[in-house]
């Protein structure tokens, strides 16, 4: 996380350029120079496409029970089948869908709440800031396990609820980052100028502060997506995540825990998908960090 805080405190507003919109172009160009990030983006898009389109096209549905029980990978069942005859490939595709949906929802909710919370806290400072940040501190101390255990009781463990539970804790990280950026942004001349022109607090926050803090926000939310996938896996392993008959990558891997020596394909394929998704997102985040924050880019000396 410290890498991000570093980015945050160092983030500088874009230098004035001649052509309009060129800030966006610059960011895009810098991103495209990061090869690992571009390859990752393509790979991630491919995985998403495979999961969402491929799942519908594949000859088996994730809930289908075939006559082949516990067969190793073959042409008929590329990822093998489990002890009930479920086609593992279909299940992995479905799990990938759910895991990505969960991760994106977490990033969206936590990003949104965290941004607003951090921006207001950093802008108003003083007692508002103290109270809001103490609340964020409090949320950071709550153990995810305990919160998940309580909140998922009695519910069916539907995917959006799992996302909601995780997001209800993760927003606090985002709010800390955003607050840090806003604290330095609010002292800038353009904010003062805007205020002198009679701008309201709300105008300054939504028109000046948040747009200028967007770089670090996007970077952090991207990394949050990767973290969310891993958190969902951990929760499912402890039995507090998505519940059957629905499935997620985390649930698939944890169900395969006992089968790892007898039917290893049940364990390795979903796990590999988790690694690929988290890895590509982390690289994309790294590329975005470089793209948004040219000051961090090391010059060759």
């Amino acid at each position: 996380m410290s890498d991000e805080t570093k980015t945050a405190t160092r983030h500088k507003p874009p230098a004035a350029t001649v052509r309009q919109r060129s800030q966006r172009e610059l960011v895009l160009r810098r991103f495209l120079r990061h090869k690992a990030a571009v390859v990752s983006l393509v790979l991630f898009a491919a995985v998403v496409l495979l999961a969402f389109a491929g799942g519908a096209l594949w000859r088996y549905d994730y809930a289908d029970i075939t006559s082949a029980v516990s067969v190793p990978p073959s042409l008929e069942h590329p990822f093998g089948t489990d002890n009930l005859g479920h086609d593992t490939f279909a299940q992995v595709l479905r799990g990938t869908q759910r895991s990505i949906e969960i991760a994106l929802l977490i990033a969206l909710l936590a990003g949104l709440v965290g941004t607003l919370w951090g921006a207001f806290s950093g802008y108003y400072r003083g007692i508002t800031d103290s109270v809001m940040m103490r609340i964020a501190d409090l949320v950071l101390t709550l153990p995810l396990l305990a919160v998940a255990a309580v909140l998922t009781r009695g519910t069916s463990g539907s995917w959006w609820f799992v996302a909601l539970v995780i997001a209800s804790l993760q927003w606090a990280y985002v709010s800390r980052v955003v607050r840090g950026v806003v604290l330095s942004l609010r002292e800038k001349e353009y904010v003062e100028a805007s205020r002198a022109l009679g701008a309201t607090d709300r105008w300054i926050i939504f028109r000046h502060l948040i747009p200028n803090a967007l770089g670090p926000i996007i970077v952090n939310v991207t990394i949050l997506v990767a973290a969310a996938i891993l958190v969902e896996t951990a929760l499912s392993f402890l039995g507090l995540g998505v519940q059957p008959p629905d499935t997620s990558l985390g649930l698939l891997v944890s169900e395969a825990d006992t089968a790892v020596s007898t039917r290893p394909w049940l364990f390795y394929f979903p796990g590999a998908f988790i690694v690929v998704i988290a890895l590509t997102i982390n690289f994309i985040g790294d590329g975005l960090r470089d793209a948004f924050d040219p000051t961090q880019r090391k010059v060759r000396t």
């Binding site: 990767a226 891993l230 896996t233 790892v260 796990g271 690694v275 060759r300």
Partner: peptide
């Protein structure tokens, strides 16, 4: 050795470990 083969290798390794579910890795 920035931008050398070693650097890229280590970077990839670091990101790989960063992206592994702790549970999956432990069972592995």
């Amino acid at each position: 050795k920035q931008y050398s083969g070693i650097d890229y290798g280590f970077t990839f390794a670091a990101f790989l470990f960063l992206s592994m579910p702790s549970f999956w890795f432990a069972v592995l």
